[in-house]
Nucleic acid binder design. Structure first.
Lengths: 218, 218
DNA sequence: ATATAAAGTTAGGCATACCTAACAAAATAA
DNA sequence: TTATTTTGTTAGGTATGCCTAACTTTATAT
């Protein structure tokens, strides 16, 4: 049985290596930043997780999940999203309140509890944030993703991944105020070259069609 | 914020010093047995809890909860019993499955969660075991207890406390197969002297009226 | 009243999960 | 290509919560 901490490491690795499309490996510092601990602490845990065959990792190398590690990470994600759905739909929590409590609830160990909770919620497919809830077999229905370039003017969508992985592109993404789960509103589109005006957290930006083709949204 | 372990110590102390009527203090070994740890471990924790002013305790002395400690213990009990009710009523857990999972759920920290859960369950007064659920203020409605001698023939009741605290009596109680929460069925009563025939876990015993007057039931 | 048993305490250890400080390797920039 | 920055590692330390073994105090029994 994994500790809460181990589960959190696996979950963070899962998000770092699969939600941002294309990236299949993560680094020590990156993981440390995600978990709000120091790189030295992560290093300790990497050795432990490797010994348990939950990650693939060599000294000074990149980190990725093994099949076993990924399976357990997805189970945690599944629990998290089911609990978020419960809090939102049954206990009338607001969109922004569910996450923190679900962070705790996701670590409750009981297969029957999750099975029954899922049934009680009538087998939801998406959590309150629109993220896919993995099924009991750990299958993550691939969200059919469109790119930002395909969204109609006036619509709002959510960033779920980026296609290009280069530093220059990612820095650009950050500069526009975007990140995973950012809500993007399409303000206007130029017929000439597909240039978009978008709005993110009240801030408007103009981006090229090529940029938009590299943003996966839902 | 208390750790899960600290919460478990307070909860155990609460049960040891208030559920068995009359007893207001507990001992190190007793607490160790309840928590399935060694007395030395309990000793460490006692120092910690004392420093936090959650318990009253002197070296080689008996242990009891301070007002603050009791309040926090009751909060844990409240959470536990609300979760048990949720599992039983909403997720169709059986009577004997709820406890283990509630042991985990009771440690989730979120005032709003418990508030909303209680509302969702429509402010239940008793958990699936018939135990009183403390309200949000930590008030434990005193269960009006009858004694075993007042129960009608054919009825089944639950032992919640004993009146007499002597070793001879308690040993007798154990000998009859009774303990806290035992279910007792009244098989027959002699008109002559109130002698009862009772059934506990399928085992029948004959006890005197005086014995029955010393057993609190619900 | 004293011997024995039970209850409680202390010292020293261990694993987990965190830290800082110093260092080593790899990536980036001049 | 060498200097610098970034990234990653190691060693040694901390607090929590558990342990065993040895000891002390209190309670019980003769």
């Amino acid at each position: 049985m994994l500790s809460q901490t181990e589960e959190n490491y696996l979950k963070a690795l899962f998000h770092l290596t699969s939600e941002i499309a294309g990236k299949t490996e993560a680094g020590t510092n990156e993981l440390a930043a995600t978990l709000n601990v120091k790189p030295a602490t992560v290093n300790d845990m990497l050795k432990k997780l490797k010994k348990k065959k939950l990650i693939v990792y060599e000294k000074y190398g990149k980190i990725s999940l093994t099949a076993s590690g990924k399976k357990q990470a997805i189970e945690v994600v599944r629990k998290h999203r089911l609990w978020e759905t419960f809090l939102y739909e049954k206990l009338e929590f607001s969109w922004d309140e569910v996450h923190e409590v679900a962070e705790q609830l996701e670590h409750i160990h009981s297969a029957k509890l999750i099975e029954r909770l899922e049934k009680f919620l009538d087998y939801p497919e998406f959590d309150p944030h629109g993220d896919v809830i993995p099924n009991a077999k750990g299958e993550l229905k691939q969200q059919e993703r469109k790119t930002l370039s395909q969204v109609a003017v006036g619509k709002t969508c959510k960033l779920v991944a980026v296609k290009d992985n280069s530093a220059s592109f990612l820095q650009y993404v950050v500069q526009v105020g975007l990140g995973l789960s950012s809500k993007i509103k399409i303000v206007s589109r130029q017929k000439f070259d597909g240039t978009l005006e978008i709005e993110v957290n009240g801030k408007k930006s103009v981006v090229s069609e090529r940029f938009a083709e590299n943003i996966f949204i839902v």
